[in-house]
Structures are given as C-alpha cells and as structure tokens.
Amino acid sequence: MGYRRRVASLESTDGQGYTDRLKNVQGPLWKRVLDVQRPYRWNVRRLFDEREVLDVGCGIGRNLGHLAPHGVGVDHNAHSVQHCRDLGLTAFTTAEFGDTEYAKPGRFGGLLAAHLVEHMPRPQAVEILRGYLEYVASGGLVVLICPQERGYASDSTHVAYTDLDGLADVCAQLGLTVQESKSFPLPRAAGKLFTYNEFVVAATKA
C-alpha cells in the first residue's frame, strides 16, 4: 500500500504546543497507576536486549525511559528534548547530535524509530533514517513502529499511513533484512478500534 497524505492543515510537531500535547496524552495519573506502558516497555526491552539504542524521534522520552540506561534520543523538537533532559534522560536535538560523543560510526547496537515514519512522506522518512544508520553497528537491530488505523486517525500531524508492508518497504530501501513483523499488543483486527495497537517491524543491518 502506498502512503496516504492528509489534505487538512497539519499541526506543527516542532513547537512547545506539540510537546505539551504529548505530555497531556502520556501523563494522566490513571495511566501511571495502571502502568499502561508495561506491555510496550516489555516489548522494547525484549527486542533490544540491553543493546545501546539510538532513539530517532524520541519525543518526550517514553521509549527512552523504557530503554534506560541504554538509550540516547534525538528529536527535532527542542522543547521535547529539554523535557527528556529534565527527566534525566540523554537526548539531543537533531542540530546538536552530530557534535556529540555519540555520533560515531557503529556506536550503537540498535536504532528505534517509534511513531516517526507516519509523520512524513515515506521518501523523507527513508532519507532521515538513512542519515542515522551509519551510527548503527553491522548486525545491529533497527525497530520501526507505526500506529494502526485508529491511532493514525487520532493525530492530525500524521501524514503517511504505514502498515507492515509499508515498513517492510522502508527496510528494503535502507538495505535492512526484516527479522520480525507483527501487530502489537493485540491482534491486527484490533487496530481499527484500539488507538494504541501498533505495527512493529524489527530488521538487521548488514
């Protein structure tokens, strides 16, 4: 399936407003009490198994927290990066990252791009990810995660609906070999009703 673009005006993802929106969505007390992130935390840790991970498009650090202390984040939104730092996480803006000690070829055992690809046309997503692949070691794991139908429709900043076939195409363009492809945490049919059902593809770098 090719990507579908929204025709409505899009909210920006690079301002304070977007950071506040993410905090409002992820921060309610009931979510913390019920630990709704438990299955997602388990899945990310299972996939990377304590590898050092570069989290591209880290947002306000949800997955960085899951990966701690093995994650380094990068994001174009300076407000979101500052929020990550306020939480004690290691994160940099896209402008900063290239000058850090972490920007070394093969530095990381893995790369995570969770809820990044759907925010732009697929060619742009491929270009961005290709720019960070040099920091992943040979044999390193690359994990791509996108929302399913309900989750995609819930955010006006989403641009390109990307399913498992779409993520496999991204991997192919990047020269990655897919190792695992699944719907998570519920079966595929739940994606039309459950906002937080995700497409998850894990691939390896040659």
Rank of each mutant, 00 (worst) to 15 (best):
L144K: 08
L164S: 14
P147Q: 07
S138L: 13
D155H: 13
G175W: 00
L129C: 02
P185Y: 08
G131F: 04
I128A: 13
C146K: 10
S183H: 11
L133W: 08
D165L: 13
D163F: 04
P187T: 01
V178I: 02
A160V: 00
T157H: 11
V136F: 07
L164R: 15
V143D: 09
L141M: 12
E134G: 15
Y152L: 02
L186S: 04
G131Q: 07
G151I: 01
Q179Y: 11
V142R: 09
A190Q: 08
A168P: 02
V142E: 07
G191K: 05
R130H: 12
V170T: 01
G191Y: 03
Q148T: 05
G151D: 05
G191S: 05
Y152F: 15
L141W: 08
Q148S: 04
L176Q: 08
S183D: 13
Q148V: 01
F184W: 13
A137H: 11
V178A: 04
V143N: 12
Q173C: 09
G151F: 06
K192R: 15
E180M: 11
T162Y: 07
T195D: 13
R130I: 01
T177W: 13
D165A: 14
G139W: 04
S156P: 15
I145D: 05
L129A: 04
A189R: 15
R188G: 00
P187R: 11
G166Y: 01
R188E: 15
R188P: 10
H158S: 02
V178F: 12
I128P: 10
K182N: 06
R188I: 00
L144M: 12
V143I: 03
Y132D: 01
G139E: 07
T162F: 08
L129M: 05
D165Q: 15
A172Q: 15
R130E: 12
E134I: 01
V159C: 09
L129E: 06
G151V: 01
C146R: 14
G140Q: 02
T162R: 09
D163S: 11
V142D: 02
G166R: 02
Y152Q: 04
T162G: 07
R150W: 09
R188S: 13
Y132V: 01
V142W: 11
L176G: 02
L176A: 05
C171M: 07
I145H: 08
A172T: 12
L144P: 01
Q173F: 06
K192I: 07
A168S: 12
T157S: 12
Q173W: 13
G175N: 01
K182E: 14
C171A: 11
L186Q: 09
L167F: 06
A168E: 14
F184K: 13
L144E: 00
R188W: 12
G131W: 04
I145S: 03
L133D: 02
H158W: 04
E134C: 06
P187E: 06
P147S: 06
Y135D: 03
R150Q: 13
Y161M: 08
E149A: 12
Y132W: 09
S154D: 14
L174E: 05
A160I: 01
T177N: 11
P187W: 07
Y152A: 01
I145W: 12
G139V: 06
E149H: 14
V170I: 07
S183I: 01
F194P: 02
Y132M: 01
H158I: 00
A190Y: 15
T195A: 14
A189P: 03
L176I: 00
L141T: 12
L133N: 04
A153T: 03
T177H: 14
L141V: 10
L176K: 11
A160Y: 10
